[in-house]
Design a protein around this nucleic acid. Structure first.
Length: 129
DNA sequence: AGTATGACTCATT
DNA sequence: AAATGAGCCATAC
């Protein structure tokens, strides 16, 4: 029994097996995240709102937590919180990776906060809808 | 099965 | 202007 459970777990890790609803939700989150242009950023809440789930920004965070398990890759580093703060940096391979990736795209970061956040902000509602 | 926990956000104080 | 509380809802334990 324990073995079965373990196998189930492994499978889960490798694939994306959520309930039908959350499955599409996660997929949508990733899709939107992938649409964020290089050198721009967006926020969890913006994605949530674009998907119509309004206040479930936390779930967007959960979706980001799962980007390891999914392809093509999702530029999770381009998703920050509503203030432009790099709140998710501890979930990257190294705590500094997120900032490094951003700086690679000419996005300046100071004290874990994106400089010119307002200017660089990419709103899916505006850009897509 | 119920509680705790977030890569969040908004309103209120 | 900074701190606090409440809403959010899928996972983890």
């Amino acid at each position: 029994m324990a073995k079965q459970r373990k196998e189930k777990r492994e499978k889960r890790k490798g694939e994306v097996t959520y309930s039908a609803e959350s499955y599409s939700f996660f997929e949508n989150v990733w899709d939107v995240a992938r649409l964020v242009p290089k050198g721009r950023i967006t926020s969890y809440g913006a994605i949530a709102r674009y998907l119509g789930t309004g206040r479930s920004a936390r779930m967007v965070g959960w979706a980001m937590n799962a980007v390891d398990k999914v392809t093509p890759k999702v530029p999770a580093h381009r998703v920050v919180n509503s203030q432009g703060l790099l709140t998710g940096k501890h979930h990257f391979k190294t705590p500094t990776l997120m900032q490094e990736l951003l700086e690679k795209e000419k996005i300046k970061v100071k004290d874990d906060q994106v400089v010119d956040f307002k200017t660089l902000f990419w709103d899916p509602m505006k850009e897509l809808g």
